[in-house]
Design a protein around this nucleic acid. Structure first.
Length: 901
RNA sequence: GCGAGAGUGGCGGAAUUGGUAGACGCGCUGGAUUUAGGAUCCAGUGUCCAAAAGACGUGGGGGUUCGAGUCCCCCCUCUCGCACCA
């Protein structure tokens, strides 16, 4: 055996781990040991499989899992599949194959790919969001939401029954209301509720789309069909009630700051006041939200969003035509149009006037699309002097501008949004912005003209989709329009078998949505309870639902009595929730916000023990790669691109002055995220075949810091592959296939190197710095290359340190070292202090901050002796010739700097 | 426009708190071995200078310091996020 037989070894150990169930975690582990829950963001099982960019995070979590096991933790490291979603459904529509079939096929392929990377998951805990016994509990959680309300005083969710009891107690006539009337009131408080909301309706696809599924051109991302804004009755989740907690609890998690910031911005909390403006000659009152109540005296006009409900009522006869035309135009505008037009403000006067509640002044009411219906109250008081958008609008339409904050001396700008003393503001005059705001809010509240309030950008979560391949809602609709939950004991509500999964498409934007489930057999659709007929809810949940709680199900995935058993949940979630959660930044907001929301509801209801699900979050970077386009701009296959000398582009692409050709035609180089669209994807399968997965694992970790995005370079793989082969050659005799290890006692120098390496490896593992940890192993080994036989006392700890990174080779060497069991639970080597101290130390000597020499001194030497030695270094003497020493600085263990002139 | 992150050899990157800039790897150059290729091993490899000595060098410009890739100010470039949020 001349070379490292990676194929045999890797297969052997993958089989061993599987049959021995090496990484299985007991259902009820020894809880006296500390736990560590390390989790990946589980993948969507796509049909094209993985490219080498996908496993980056999985390899990292695997290294952590293996390392923590060796450090004595009970490690929970599970994997599953987020398998509901559009691609499988689309495939089903096109090919008539049930999405479950497609999904299972894709899951199998991905499982094979993941297993071929030697990842130490506890596969007994595998789950798929599409498993009926999984989504049974997704539906159960939905029922928890449906059966809860948010108690603002207690600042937590509570069972809806408690609200009902309170209403019955406080309102004598509660019992006289009809069931439908009571339900109407309750539904205004339920965390899951039906509401008529404007949605992105795509008639051609027959479904509502999430904002992310709509292109900037206002068309569907899939199929490029037109999308219309239209009000539809949909399921909503009252996530807005959690706005404050979703922000404040970010303080208790260890997450990347940029992600926290994105979430804070997404929730978009702003403090301000609601102010009521009476309309002149009407009963109507316009309520506005403002963050600047201090500028109320400077409000010179008002603006309503085009969709505002009062527009019709207020508009005068003379203005009616103009207003209607404007509203129609605004409704037809896509977001892109509105953005493009945002440079010049547009609007129209309603003819009506409002009364400024502060000074009784009469101000015009306008309609303009720079005011959004979806934020605040959909109406604003315009204060051009202190708001740039209002200033712009006032300039276009020649509206008055009154400064109420004194701009600084020499201010030449237009709107002044900074701090300064109030002017032209009656009782506020002289106050700075902060005090003026507080004073105005007091006044408004005392006068009954408004009150302090908080507004969020966050909207309630639109939770229904008109699709087949999703979780059915556990909801029944009565013929009288009432809604009732499916009884918990009746769960799951399984998807009905169907042949045709297509939503009902239409050219008519006003056609009623008919989701695929509307065509399910009547014995599924219709339910009779106590002689009353109900139709099942026909929408399904969005893809986010399943990923909102999968980390909890992994803890207890076979439990058929509860979504997770309390005792298991409290052990594995501990104080910190998931101890390490690794995934891409693309989930910075939606998935992570939705999961936190569900978790908090479950926490309020006493089903989980931590406030936050993910104690520590880490974003791995992307793997990028060079790509090439021909003259038509079409991406061409990277593997067939060559340079001017006919060398493969892969070998020279990071060098300058290259020209590239594809089949003789010149192509241009670019650089981007690896993937199908740029035709620059590299499959882990091909790397596995050529070098083995230990090499692939090592290379992906060696490329650079885990959080950085970095370029894939197949050429560079040989580096870590050479290292692994060197390890093998140093441990195993190529001719006899026997172990090259001696029982000799290592030298002191060898022990010092070993323990220095252990120390480096340990700190690097703790800070997920795998690139430098590999460098430490390479350096260590290179010192032993000349040895005929490595002393066992060095060889064993080395193999253990290699184990998390290249587990197959490590297991094989460990076995050859005479161990009968897997090294997966062997203790991690400990660096001993006595081998970390040096007898003599090397010090750099600087003169005026420039390195002029170096000295070797006993570690225990006195400062005076060290300085004397420094001054006598030959080259230092030269530089001290003719100058006077002013100062001598000694940094222990580092350097000496002599300041002289 | 607002917000965040980044910029170090031919390339990927290292330098946790201010203390020898370029660890480790790729590539490249030379040598050994080999029929050859491959593989392996040894040496070299930031720039300038023939070399020692030295000078310069972490996007650019200034500053603080005995000492700055690291701290402060100004500017440039790139990437990402948000985008009329009142």
């Amino acid at each position: 055996m001349a070379d490292y037989p990676f194929q045999d070894i890797e297969q052997k150990w993958q089989r061993f781990w599987e049959t021995e169930r090496t990484f299985r975690v007991a259902d009820d582990p020894d809880t006296s040991k500390p736990k560590y829950y390390v989790l990946d963001m589980f993948p969507y099982p796509s049909g094209v499989g993985l490219h080498v960019g996908h496993p980056l995070g999985y390899i990292a979590t695997d290294i952590v899992a293996r390392y923590k096991r060796m450090r004595g933790f009970n490690v929970l490291h599970p994997m599953g599949f987020d398998a509901f979603g559009l691609p499988a459904e689309q495939f089903a529509v096109e090919h008539g194959v049930h999405p479950r079939v497609t999904t299972e096929k894709n899951v199998d392929n991905m499982l094979r790919q993941l297993k071929s990377l030697g990842l130490s998951y506890d596969w007994d805990r595998k789950l798929s969001t599409t498993d009926v016994d999984y989504y049974k509990w997704t539906q159960w959680i939905f029922l928890q939401l449906f059966n809860s309300w948010y108690d603002e005083e207690a600042d937590r969710a509570r069972p809806i029954a408690e609200l009902e009891a309170r209403l019955a107690k406080e309102h004598a006539d509660w019992t006289s209301l009809s069931g439908a009337e009571r339900e109407d009131i309750l539904s205004q408080h339920r965390l899951a509720y039906l509401a008529e909301v404007p949605v992105n309706w795509c008639p051609a696809l027959g479904t509502v789309l999430a904002n992310e599924e709509v292109t900037n051109e206002g068309r569907s991302e899939r199929g490029n069909h037109p999308v219309f804004r239209r009000p539809l009755k949909q399921w909503m989740l009252r996530i807005t009630k959690y706005g404050d907690r979703l922000i404040s609890d970010l303080d208790i998690v260890d997450w990347p700051e940029p992600v926290k910031l994105m979430q804070r911005n997404w929730v978009g909390r702003s403090e301000g006041a609601n102010v009521d403006f009476p309309v002149d000659g009407h009963d109507a009152v316009i309520r506005v939200f403002t963050t600047r109540p201090d500028t109320l005296f400077g409000a010179t006009y008002m603006v309503l969003a085009p969709e505002h409900e009062l527009v019709d009522t207020l508009t005068t006869a003379e203005q009616r035509e103009a207003v209607q035309a404007y509203r129609k135009e605004a409704a037809g505008k896509t977001d892109v149009d509105r953005m493009a037009d945002s440079k010049t403000k547009t609007g129209v006067f309603t003819g009506a006037h409002a009364i400024n509640p502060a000074d009784g002044g009469r101000i015009p009411i306008w309609v303009a699309d720079y005011v959004l219906m979806g934020y605040g109250t959909g109406a604003i008081m315009a204060v051009p002097a202190q708001d740039e958008r209002d200033w712009e609008f006032a300039e276009v339409f020649n509206l008055p501008i009154i400064r109420t904050v004194q701009p600084p001396e020499g201010w030449e700008g237009k709107a002044f949004t900074g701090d300064g003393p109030a002017i032209n503001s009656d009782f506020l005059n002289g106050l700075k912005v902060k005090e003026a705001k507080a004073r105005m809010i007091d006044w408004l509240e005392k006068e009954g003209k408004g009150q302090g309030t908080v507004t969020y950008k966050l909207r309630d979560w639109l939770f229904s989709r008109q699709r087949y391949w999703g979780e059915p809602f556990p909801i029944l609709h009565g013929e009288d329009g009432t809604v009732r939950a499916v009884d918990e004991s009746e769960l799951p509500v399984a998807l009905p078998p169907m042949e045709d999964f297509k939503p009902t498409a239409s050219d008519d934007p006003d056609a009623p949505p008919r989701p695929p489930l509307a065509r399910a057999d009547e014995d599924w659709r219709i339910v009779t309870i106590n002689g009353q007929r109900f139709e099942r809810e026909l929408n399904t949940m969005p893809q986010w639902a399943g990923s909102c709680w999968y980390y909890l199900r992994f803890i207890d995935n076979k439990n058929d009595k509860a979504f997770v058993a309390d005792s298991r949940e409290s052990y594995w979630m501990g104080d910190n929730g998931v101890d390490l959660y690794i995934g891409g930044v693309e989930h910075a907001v939606l998935h992570l916000l939705y999961a936190r929301f569900w978790h908090k509801v479950l926490y309020d209801l006493g089903h989980v023990s931590t406030k936050e699900p993910f104690g520590r979050l880490f974003n791995q970077g992307y793997i990028q790669a060079y790509a090439y386009r021909d003259e038509r701009g079409i991406a061409v296959d990277v593997s067939e691109v060559v340079n001017q000398n006919g060398r493969p582009a892969m070998d020279v692409q990071d060098q300058q002055g290259q020209q590239y050709f594809y089949k003789g035609e010149p192509v241009t180089q670019e650089y981007g995220k690896m993937g199908k669209s740029l035709k620059n994807a590299v499959s882990p399968d091909e790397i596995n075949e050529e070098y083995g997965c230990d090499t692939l694992r090592l290379y992906e970790m060696y490329m650079g810091p885990l959080e950085a995005s970095k370029p894939w370079n197949t050429r560079d793989i040989v580096g870590v592959n050479r290292f692994l082969r060197r390890v093998w050659r140093n441990f195993v005799d190529a001719d006899t296939d026997t172990l090259l290890v001696s029982d000799e006692t290592p030298t002191d120098d060898q022990m010092r190197l070993l323990h220095k390496t252990i120390e480096r490896m340990t700190t690097d593992m703790e800070r997920l710095s795998f690139n430098t940890s590999i460098a430490a192993l390479i350096e260590c080994l290179s010192e032993w290359l000349a040895l005929d036989r490595i002393p066992r006392a060095l060889a064993e700890p080395f193999v253990l340190m290699l184990a998390p990174l290249a587990p197959h080779m490590a297991e094989e060497l460990w076995q050859r070292l005479g161990h009968a069991t897997s090294l997966a639970y062997e203790p991690w080597p400990v660096a001993e202090e006595r081998w970390l101290v040096q007898d003599t130390i090397e010090l750099v000597v600087q003169v005026n901050g420039k390195v002029r020499g170096s000295i070797s001194v006993p570690a225990a030497a006195a400062k005076e002796d060290i300085l004397a030695a420094a001054r006598s270094d030959q080259n230092v003497v030269r530089h001290l010739d003719g100058v006077t020493i002013r100062r001598e600085i000694y940094v222990p263990g580092r350097l000496v700097n002599i300041v002289a002139n």
